[in-house]
Design a binder for these strands. Structure first.
Length: 489
RNA sequence: GGCCCUAUCGUCUAGCGGUCCAGGAUAUCGGCCUCUCACGCCGAAGACACGGGUUCGAGUCCCGUUGGGGCUACCA
């Protein structure tokens, strides 16, 4: 019994930074392959010579790995169907183009870009559909010969009548009339194939069973189908995923949304959270669970649960999810991530023990690793910079504040180091009983003195981490600030 | 403009003809917890785009309208 193997591909074009949409489509390809014990392939679609760059390819592969995807074949890992870079497969395309030329499924075109633009101009004026006018398609053999080896492209000869039915696994059959389909350029004048040709040839030659790609490709699928037909090949199963959207519902774009995977990495999003979030775009767990691992997704995966409305990429929900993942980490694991995080690394001064002490205080407050930068600032920055007025809870005067803080300093100073939060708290609470300020006010003034902020982790735990010396000196600073005469002029 | 896809709370979604005066999540607001913030817990408000059908019965099926999106390159 020969069960044909599931083979899918992730096909990024290295023309820019690693795109979140690539990870999104890649995720579903990867999961589908895993579910069916198939193979997931990475193929680099670098057929646009002007825009493709090798460094982008490297970044893309790196980011896809970062986010947690893996592949069985690709330019970096090899495989039996290589090469996996389209720029290295030119001879394959040339051979196939010749086949199309020979069979009459395609033809050469010598039209200049200028002429094509003029034709389009006219069509726009006439409010006619913008399509190649078929000039070279109608050329007599002698006329064609006359062009000799002038630069040319090869175009697909789309039938004038009839239509092509696209079978998409997620939708009803889609019929597109041939009158709507342009004589697509298959081979550019620089000898490189266009997406359409390279894609079809490679998907066949690499034995892809399913093509899972974004919805934007639906309208060009008839061209692809015609190519499969012209070559006498059986097409793969097509599945068009919804497009990720900006908040205004346009196709996700870098003008309106961060789209680079590097951005999310730098901000301190956890890759597993990002992937989990992407999984929620157009797909749901059978039990509606929203927080799940990649393996759990694979366990429960089925394309039955895809929904086709284009999902808006909502940063707020991503942040929430990321916070969930941060809280799920063990404190030790979180420290490790923080130390690795490019965003916060510079602050940590390689003092990982200090980070280990701070981490538990901040864990439930962080939404991204990058938040550490700001939230932990007072653990690193000395002296603190804050406004004197912050030390004075609603209407209390400086004289009182000086007294209270001085007394608290004395109470605290009685504790020898190292400090323990429970002991400090007990002493201060005892002091509060006889003090002229209520606990609320005292705690707040103390918090400001210790952190320079109105919001902080629990006071005494924070003081324990800061340590005796730093806390006492910050208290002195606070008192000094209160005593400093108001500068006039 | 033409063609195609799509349509449940602001957002992500559950719902696959009756169990839906539509459920969950997030965001928002209120409360509890509490030394602040956060976490956690409780609660509130918030949607089936519209109009026709089909059916005993429609968020669920069909058609139309409207909205949104994509494609319309020698870019992918």
């Amino acid at each position: 019994m020969t069960q044909s193997q599931v083979r899918v591909r992730i096909a990024p074009s290295p023309t820019g930074a690693p795109h979140v949409g690539t990870a999104y489509i890649g995720l579903f390809n990867y999961v589908f392959a895993r579910v069916h014990d198939g193979r997931c392939v990475i193929r680099i679609e670098d057929t646009d010579q002007a825009r493709s760059e090798r460094r982008y390819e490297e970044d893309i592969l790196r980011s896809l790995r970062w986010v947690g995807l893996a592949w069985d074949e690709g330019p970096d890992v090899g495989g039996a169907y290589g090469p996996y870079r389209q720029s290295e497969r030119l001879s394959i395309y040339r051979k196939h183009v010749q086949q199309l030329l020979d069979s009459g499924a395609a033809y050469r075109c010598w039209c200049t870009p200028e002429r094509l633009e003029a034709v389009r101009q006219q069509q726009r004026q006439d409010k006619a559909p913008l399509r190649y006018d078929g000039h070279c398609r109608r050329l007599a053999e002698a006329e064609a010969k006359a062009h000799g080896d002038q630069p040319s492209v090869v175009r697909l000869k789309v039938p004038e009548d009839g239509g092509t039915v696209v079978h998409d696994a997620f939708r009803d059959p889609i019929t597109i009339e041939h009158g709507q389909v342009d004589d697509q350029v298959l081979l550019k004048s620089d000898g490189y194939p266009t997406y359409h040709l390279a894609n079809v040839v490679d998907d066949h030659v690499m034995e892809m069973s399913h093509v899972i790609r974004a919805e934007e490709w639906i309208s060009s699928t008839p061209k692809h189908l015609m190519l499969y037909h012209a070559f006498g090949w059986a097409p793969p199963v097509f599945m068009h995923m919804p497009l990720l959207r900006n908040a205004d519902r346009s196709k996700i774009s870098k003008r309106k949304n961060p789209v680079s995977l590097r951005y999310y990495e730098r901000q301190g999003y956890l890759p597993e959270a990002l992937l989990n979030f992407l999984a929620l775009m157009g797909w749901s767990m059978p039990d509606e669970r929203e927080v799940f691992t990649l393996d759990e997704m694979i366990e429960s995966f089925s394309f039955d649960r895809i929904s086709l409305g284009g999902p808006v990429f909502d940063l707020q929900k991503l942040e929430w999810l990321n916070g969930m993942y941060i809280r799920q980490l063990s404190p030790a694991a979180l420290s490790e991530r923080l130390l690795e995080s490019t965003r916060v690394k510079s602050r940590l001064l390689n003092d990982s023990a200090y980070v280990d002490a701070i981490t538990p205080l901040l864990q439930e407050r962080l939404r991204t690793l990058g938040d550490f930068q700001d939230m932990a600032a007072f653990f690193y920055d000395t002296p603190l910079a804050y406004d004197k007025a912050m030390l004075l809870p609603k209407g209390r005067n400086p004289r009182e504040a000086v007294k209270v803080l001085t007394e608290v300093a004395e109470v605290l100073a009685r504790h020898a180091g190292p400090w323990h939060d429970a002991e400090l708290e007990a002493s201060v609470r005892t002091y509060v009983e006889g003090a002229k300020w209520p606990g609320r006010d005292l705690f707040m003034a103390l918090r400001i003195a210790m952190t320079g902020r109105t919001a902080s982790p629990p006071l005494f735990a924070t003081m324990q981490v800061l340590g005796r010396d730093l806390c006492l000196s910050r208290l002195e600073d606070a008192v000094a600030l209160l005593q400093k005469p108001v500068k006039s002029g």
